[in-house]
Design a protein around this nucleic acid. Structure first.
Length: 566
RNA sequence: UGUCUCAUGGUGUAAUGGUAGCACUACAGUUUUUGGUACUGUCUGUCUAGGUUCGAAUCCUGGUGAGACAACCA
């Protein structure tokens, strides 16, 4: 997992700018050579692939440089937070393969934060403002126009202390007072224009502290101080917090009393084409029933990807490929798909499944015979073994694998043409039957008994190989075919329209006619398979002993599709 | 007519003053009992104008473009 034991022949992967900074800090002995990070989610939603990028960095840096990484819930907004999210977040981090050294909550520090705020008031650096949110916003000015001072800005210290107490005692209504740091109403950095440190929330209980507190600290104050209390050395966050950094440092400056201090560094957040990466939008999709829940396999959530069939390894490989920089770009969804194909190619057992069945009758094969054919579980892994698949006179093949009149480059079954049945015999097509509308409903063929897999004659060259299942032995299955959630590549570029109007109406197509080989009878939830020649599929959580349900994780690359488009 | 940040093939990412490389994608080919995989090859790039230097993707200056910031959210 670390790069410290590189052999000479493995070229050293270049460090990203954060690793370079950490190595430099280590070299200079900053914070006594200690490395400590934290992953600080707000428990107000499920983790998504963008969080995975942050998790891999926070935990990865600690692991690589012999430091520690703590999990800290940034739970300073009781109106939006819930234990449901606290639990799912922990589950997802563990699933990704990480273990925190300690688990903390910002709410653990409410008393310490309070005490420090009192100290700031006594120093004349904070005051209670009684203006409305609207008035405060108005006085704040704009990025190009300086703000103006609140009439309460120079209240006596004693009065501030008394009012601050009242803010927390329940005597003051929500919105009636806030505590603000007294910094600089004319600063070019909006966050320095007397930022709010505390506001009142008393109508809603905190998920851990109940109604104990009525005054709650705001992010800019709580986050940096929590880092400081815990001994965090590298506070890594995304680019949008860049303008917060001077304020982060200002608060640290007020309280730091030894050589130690945490440093905030920002990296680019993850954007991926054809999807959303905002908790707010995801929540909306869930609440409005536009997807089936946080773990809908179309969602970019960790639990959605898990249910879709993504593995922790595939996500790690993806994160490794995209890197960490300060450039705010958008990653091609194709790269995520490549990462999961790459991992599943080496792991997933190959099985036969026919999604759109058409009957194939082998005229010269005995009707009462069942031959068990040997199927290689994974040609990429010789230790994966084999399993048996029953072969009979009547089979199902894919509708797409037969054409009466085929173009030159069609390698599959066509009248008078030969094709190999995977793991079985070479057959020759003799004809087909159609219904009154002209649709092919049965295909007829003759097999060559000397061409069974393993026999010398089987080495004969035929231009194509198709998969099949036995009519009698195959199992029915529901197969859910997923496509990108949105039909627009870059949602951020479509600022004028509602993102819900850009949903792909075909993001889920349910197939109820699929037939799978009987070996799949005993598959377990979330098992990954490759449906030979089709794609990677996994066993959906809706699967019961009586009903098989599969999710398409991703298709196989298909050069025939491209050939057809020419 | 603010502050901060960023700019390398279609996409993402290296090169830390000295041969612009890698991955994905696309295209072509080899192998193949998966039109998969693997392997080989090809196309495509330093935003712009100056400056410093023997030498600039890299340092400096000016443009241009993009993003973030004006929640009692984090």
């Amino acid at each position: 997992m670390t790069d410290t034991n590189l052999t000479p022949e493995t070229p050293k992967r270049s460090l990203n700018f954060i690793e370079q900074m950490v190595e430099n800090d280590l070299k200079e002995g900053r914070n006594e050579g200690r490395i400590q990070t934290r992953f600080p989610p707000e428990p107000n939603g499920y983790l998504h692939i963008g969080h995975a990028k942050a998790i891999c960095l926070d935990f990865g840096i600690a692991r690589k440089y012999n430091g520690i990484c703590n999990l800290r819930f940034d739970d300073t907004n009781p109106t939006k937070e819930d234990v449901e999210y606290v639990d799912s977040i922990q589950e997802d981090i563990k699933w990704l393969g990480y273990q925190w050294a300690n688990i903390y909550y910002a709410s653990d520090y409410f008393q310490q934060l309070w005490d420090l705020a009192v100290r700031l008031i006594k120093d004349g650096k904070a005051y209670v403002d009684e203006q409305s949110a609207e008035e405060i916003a108005k006085q704040k000015g704009t990025p190009t126009i300086p703000g103006t001072a609140s009439p309460y800005r120079n209240r006596p210290v004693e009065e501030n202390l008394r009012l601050f107490e009242k803010m927390n005692s329940g005597e003051i209504e929500e919105g009636a007072m806030v505590l603000r740091a007294k910094i600089d109403m004319a600063s070019s950095n909006m966050h320095f224009r007397d930022p709010i440190m505390y506001r009142i929330v008393k109508s809603h209980p905190h998920h851990r502290t109940g109604y104990t507190w009525k005054a709650y600290p705001m992010y800019d104050y709580a986050h940096g101080q929590s880092d400081y209390f815990e001994g965090v050395t590298h506070s890594l966050c995304t680019l949008e917090f860049e303008v917060h950094r001077p304020l982060y440092n200002w608060f640290i400056d007020q309280f730091a009393n030894n050589n130690y201090r945490p440093y905030q560094t920002e990296f680019n957040r993850l954007n991926i084409t054809y999807t959303v990466m905002s908790k707010r939008k995801m929540l909306q999709l869930v609440q409005e029933g536009l997807v089936r829940g946080w773990d809908d396999p179309r969602m970019p959530t960790i639990c959605g990807l898990r249910r879709r069939g993504y593995t922790p390894t595939s996500i790690h490989n993806f994160i490794d490929k995209i890197g960490y920089t300060k450039y705010d770009g958008t990653i091609d969804m194709g790269l995520l798909e490549h990462a999961v194909r790459e991992d599943l190619n080496s792991k997933a057992i190959r099985v036969s499944a026919v999604l759109n069945p058409i009957k194939l009758i082998i005229a010269n094969y005995p009707a009462d015979t069942v031959e068990m054919m040997e199927a290689t579980n994974n040609p990429e892994d010789e230790n994966a073994g084999t399993h048996q698949i029953p072969f009979t006179k009547e089979l199902y093949i894919e509708q797409d694998d037969f054409m009466e009149e085929a173009p030159k480059k069609y390698f599959r079954l066509t009248i008078n043409g030969e094709v190999r049945l995977k793991n079985a015999y070479i057959i020759k097509c003799t004809g087909c039957k159609k219904d009154e509308k002209g649709n092919v409903i049965e295909v007829y063929a003759e097999y060559d008994p000397q061409t069974k897999s393993g026999m010398p004659e089987s080495a004969r060259k035929v231009k194509g190989t198709i998969h099949w299942v036995s009519v009698e032995h195959s199992l029915p299955a529901e197969v859910r075919l997923y496509d990108r959630l949105f039909k627009v590549e870059n949602l951020n570029e479509e600022k004028d329209s509602d993102f819900r109007d850009m949903l792909n109406p075909n993001s889920l197509i349910t197939n109820n006619q699929a037939r799978v080989e009987p070996w799949l009878k005993n598959c377990k939830h979330l098992d990954n398979f490759q449906f030979q020649r089709i794609g990677y599929f996994n066993v959906d959580l809706d699967t019961t002993p009586d009903k098989l349900v599969f999710n398409r994780t991703v298709t196989l690359k298909d050069s025939w599709v491209k050939e057809q488009q020419k």
